[in-house]
Amino acid sequence: MTNICILGNSHVGSLKRGWDAIYNDYQQIRITFFAQRSDGIEGLIVHDGKLIPNNEDLMNALAFTSGGKTDILPDDYDVFIIYGVGAHVNFDIHSQFYSRTVIESTIKDLVVDTLSFKLLQRLRKITSKPIYIGHMPLLAATQVQLEASPNDYLARVELINEIIYRPFHAEMVKQPVFTIVNGNNTHPKFSKDSKRLAIGDQYDDQHHPDEDIDHMNDQFGEIWLKEYFENYLRI
């Protein structure tokens, strides 16, 4: 049995619903979700070797999304995934020549203030177990062009892993390539009918507005998890 802890923000909603659709196919995996909308999970703090919420709203959201747990105990899990919460690969290093120093500085500047990175640092204080970073989905395309290679995107993920995450013994997960169009967007079909993260209030599972290109749907979450299991956990 592999126990996975996924923590994050609204983007976790698509993973959760995706998991609900496929968990019967993965009897050897157990996933516990800890999520709160927006940047509410910033209130997770290190205390006595575990991560605990520092406010009631967060505590309630964590309890709802995890099925009753409010604290993250590292011994309970084999692997951690920090999903969404500001992680992205939206930098351009190919429009002109940039030195390695410039590229490294840019990537560090883009990452260090994100909530994702703060959570990584906090998590690393309490565990040496594998930590994966799931970046916010690439924005959904409004139009799909014919051919555009995702190679630049893949190179950016590799670079950010090399510069930022490997020194933390962590790794950013690549978005499934076949969900990518225009080289740097998510196919619009994956943002159709995306829903809000359920945390136990009246907004649970409401549809995002049609024009929302940030959040992805259940199908995307399902694909993302399947690829993660296969490529990163070899399951």
Partner: peptide, 18 residues
């Protein structure tokens, strides 16, 4: 005509002469 990469902080852009 030679802007810094998107995401480089103002402070580091200046340090690196952008």
């Amino acid at each position: 005509t030679e802007p810094p990469p998107h995401g480089l902080s103002e402070k580091n852009a200046r340090l690196l002469n952008y």
